[in-house]
């Protein structure tokens, strides 16, 4: 039987939801109780926002890539055309 104490699937789903919106009081209390008792989900609760932060950093990582010159030359011709 699933209870909020055993239900890590539900607890981790609530952890994802709470990153975006405030949870209703009942769900906050249940999540709090679950996290109090479950070390795995406590880890998940730390890792999940860390992962979001890592994704943001990765997307912003500086790059030195340049547009390939043949592609740029081709595109330039279209931009030069008087319209």
């Amino acid at each position: 039987m699933r209870t909020f104490i055993s239900d890590c699937q539900r607890a981790t789903l609530l952890i994802e939801r709470r990153a975006d919106q405030q949870l209703p009081l009942a769900e906050r209390v249940q999540l709090w109780a679950h996290l109090h008792l479950c070390a795995y989900c406590r880890r998940y609760a730390v890792q999940s926002p860390a992962l979001a932060r890592a994704a943001r950093l990765t997307a912003q990582a500086p790059s030195t890539a340049r547009l390939p010159s043949d592609f740029a030359a081709q595109l330039q011709r279209r931009l030069d055309e008087p319209s």
Binding site: R2, S6, Q9, Y40, R43, V46, Q47
Partner: peptide, 21 residues
């Protein structure tokens, strides 16, 4: 989700619980 959580209890499947990072 059954890959990660036991369908009966919702608890992490053996070996799927988050490790310390």
């Amino acid at each position: 989700e059954a890959e990660f959580f036991r369908p009966d209890t919702g608890h992490w499947q053996p070996g799927q619980g988050p490790a310390d990072w």
